[in-house]
Amino acid sequence: MAGTFTFHVVSPEGDVLKEEVEFVVLPGIDGELGILPNHAPLIAALETGVITYTVNGKKKKAAISGGFVEVSENKATVLADTAEVAEAIDVERALAAKERAEKRLAQKSPDTDMKRAEYAFRRAIARLNAADGKNL
């Protein structure tokens, strides 16, 4: 094994994930960020999307809704607005949220908060992609 580093994901609800990982891919606002052991210090903004991380050679996923990552001293910490590991995602609830957001976006009513509807849609898509990606 080439080495590992500590990967920690925190949301306002508390710790979501803390693992020794081999590799992490994060949804940065300017594109994907790949983190390996002994990465140079880094602070970057994240957007809504899927985190992919490797533990003992096995890929795992989590969904986040924005936030930041700090990498230093062989540790990567994500401070996310919301975060869920794939196993904790309720797929039926995520599908329902996606459908509600699609309806609000399609209405284009002056009463609809379009930014909020877009955020809800992107979050639902990220959750579905992290869960299994088959429900899109």
Results as ranks from 00 to 15, higher is better:
A80L: 10
R100L: 09
S65Y: 02
F7G: 02
T82K: 09
T82S: 13
V55K: 06
A94K: 02
S11A: 15
V10I: 15
N38T: 10
T52L: 04
L36Y: 15
K58G: 00
R123N: 07
G31V: 04
A62M: 10
A45I: 06
P41R: 02
A130E: 05
A106M: 06
E22F: 05
T54G: 00
V24Y: 05
G66E: 08
H39L: 05
L17C: 09
K60Y: 09
D15H: 10
K103F: 03
A83E: 03
M114F: 08
G14F: 09
E32K: 14
F5S: 00
V91D: 03
L17Q: 11
K75E: 11
A76E: 05
T52W: 03
S109P: 01
R116V: 04
A63I: 05
N56K: 15
G31Q: 06
K58P: 00
G67Y: 03
F5P: 03
R116F: 10
T4Y: 03
K134C: 06
E47G: 15
T54D: 06
A94L: 12
A97N: 09
L46N: 03
N38Q: 14
R100D: 07
G57E: 01
A40Q: 14
N56I: 00
A101V: 07
A124F: 06
N74A: 09
E102K: 13
L46G: 02
P41T: 05
P37T: 07
V69N: 01
A40D: 08
F23A: 13
E19P: 04
E87P: 01
M1P: 12
F68Y: 14
E70M: 04
A63H: 07
L136C: 02
L17D: 08
A86W: 04
F68W: 12
H8G: 01
E99Y: 04
